[in-house]
């Protein structure tokens, strides 16, 4: 695929912590991990989606000022960021697998509306919905 969304990013409090979460606990792979001074461009990929990168970005100067960066990190920690959805073949199996690796679930799998869904958060506070693909 040459056209389409290539990168969409999350704000995270700590990129090392986020990297370890998305790779070791969720099974993503690292696509790019490039540093330039204090700045770090870090993206990961879902193994089934080679055309899409999920960015794990730290709000920081000089992209935003320090106070704004702090506000953004606070907003993430308050769970105020937009919805994220991860589709899986088997929600209960994914829940069991992720949970055994220490993922913090905020809702156990519930069967409803012809599917099964659960919820979890990353260490920064970003909330994911885990939905069984129909």
């Amino acid at each position: 695929m040459s056209q389409g969304v290539q990168v969409a990013g999350l704000y995270v409090r700590d990129q090392d912590e986020a990297l370890s979460f998305y790779v070791e606990k969720l099974g993503f792979t690292v696509h790019t991990d490039a540093r330039n001074g204090d700045y770090r461009w870090l993206t990961v990929q879902h193994p089934d989606q080679p055309g899409f990168q999920l960015g794990l970005f730290r709000p920081q100067a000089p992209l935003v000022d320090d106070a704004t960066a702090a506000n953004l990190v606070e907003a993430v920690a308050k769970g105020a960021m937009p919805p994220l959805v991860l589709a899986v073949d088997d929600c209960q199996a994914a829940y069991d697998r992720y949970r055994s690796r220490g993922v913090e679930f905020t809702q156990e799998p519930i069967a409803r509306y012809g599917s099964v869904d659960a919820s979890f958060r990353d260490p920064s506070g970003n909330g994911w919905k885990l939905i069984q693909a129909r």
Partner: peptide
Amino acid sequence: IVATGQDPQLLR
């Protein structure tokens, strides 16, 4: 980063 409000780890 010097936070203006509450500590992010407390908020989390």
